[in-house]
Amino acid sequence: MTTRRAFLALSLAAPALALAPVGAALAQAPGPIGGIRVDVSRLVEQGWGEHARAIGAGLERELRTAFGGDIRRGGPTLVVSVRQVFLNSYAGNGGGGGRWGGGDGGASSDSFESQASLVGRGNRVLATYPVLSTVPASSAGPWYLPDIDKRRIENLIRHNAGWIKRYVAG
């Protein structure tokens, strides 16, 4: 017999389950990961050249830091494919006002799109998490600093790695 309390609990849990990332049911409490691999081949195809390799190395370093002691031999490999990096051409403050009374509606945001997959034995994909990070371009500091693009990319990498850790670690 279904009680009112059980029905209410189920109805409250349904939206959360519907919003869970792809493969989340399979990846709940996957345990420690066995390794990390970052693929930036798509960025190379888009013309990022040596910058693509630097982005891959930076993301791998940030993921290793984020997962820390959760990397143990025998666990599934975390494979992250970087799909796109977008740096907005304007990195000043967002201005004021606008139609809705604040900011610029995200027009000066940078974005970093990746797909994180847990791959087990026999190259079996256990879970997949699409991750899109959006960070205000101005969060890296004044636009006129000589290393501003590098700092913006580092912000995106850190933000994306944090979301990957959150999705994978549950």
Rank of each mutant, 00 (worst) to 15 (best):
Glu50His: 09
His51Met: 11
Ala52Cys: 08
Ala52His: 02
Ala52Asn: 07
Ala52Glu: 04
Arg53His: 11
Ala54Phe: 04
Ala57His: 02
Gly58Met: 06
Leu59Lys: 08
Leu59Cys: 11
Glu60Met: 08
Leu63Gln: 04
Ala66Phe: 02
Gly68Phe: 02
Gly68Pro: 04
Asp70Ile: 05
Ile71Asp: 04
Arg73Glu: 15
Gly75Ile: 05
Gly75Trp: 04
Gly75Glu: 06
Leu78Pro: 12
Leu78Phe: 05
Leu78Arg: 02
Leu78Ala: 13
Val80His: 06
Val80Thr: 15
Ser81Asp: 15
Val82Lys: 10
Arg83Asp: 13
Arg83Asn: 12
Arg83Trp: 01
Leu87His: 06
Leu87Gly: 10
Leu87Ser: 07
Leu87Trp: 06
Leu87Arg: 12
Asn88Tyr: 00
Ser89Ile: 06
Ser89Gln: 11
Ser89Leu: 12
Tyr90Thr: 10
Tyr90Lys: 13
Ala91Met: 05
Ala91Ser: 15
Gly92Phe: 01
Asn93Lys: 02
Gly94Ile: 00
Gly95Glu: 01
Gly95Asn: 03
Gly96Ser: 10
Gly96Ala: 08
Gly97Cys: 06
Gly97Phe: 03
Gly97Arg: 00
Gly98Met: 10
Arg99Lys: 08
Trp100Ile: 03
Trp100Pro: 07
Gly101Met: 09
Gly102Asp: 07
Gly102Thr: 10
Gly103Asn: 06
Gly103Arg: 03
Asp104His: 03
Gly105Leu: 00
Gly105Glu: 00
Gly105Asn: 00
Gly106Leu: 01
Ala107Ile: 00
Ser109Val: 03
Asp110Phe: 06
Phe112Ala: 10
Glu113Leu: 14
Gln115His: 04
Gln115Gly: 07
Ser117Tyr: 01
Ser117Cys: 06
Asn123Met: 05
Asn123Glu: 10
Val125Asp: 03
Val125His: 08
Val125Glu: 07
Val125Lys: 14
Ala127Pro: 01
Thr128Phe: 13
Thr128Pro: 04
Pro130Lys: 13
Pro130Tyr: 12
Leu132Asp: 14
Ser133Glu: 09
Thr134Gln: 13
Pro136Ala: 15
Ser139Asp: 10
Ser139Cys: 08
Ser139Arg: 07
Ser139Tyr: 01
Gly141Ala: 10
Gly141Ser: 10
Tyr144Thr: 10
Tyr144Cys: 09
Pro146Tyr: 08
Asp147Glu: 11
Asp147Ser: 14
Asp149Met: 02
Asp149Glu: 14
Asp149Pro: 00
Lys150Ala: 15
Arg152Gly: 14
Ile153Thr: 15
Ile153Asn: 06
Glu154Lys: 13
Leu156Met: 14
Arg158Gln: 12
Arg158Tyr: 07
Arg158Lys: 14
His159Asn: 14
Asn160Arg: 08
Ala161Asn: 05
Gly162Ala: 12
Trp163Pro: 00
Trp163Asn: 05
Trp163Phe: 11
Lys165Met: 12
Lys165Arg: 14
Tyr167Ser: 08
Ala169Asn: 05
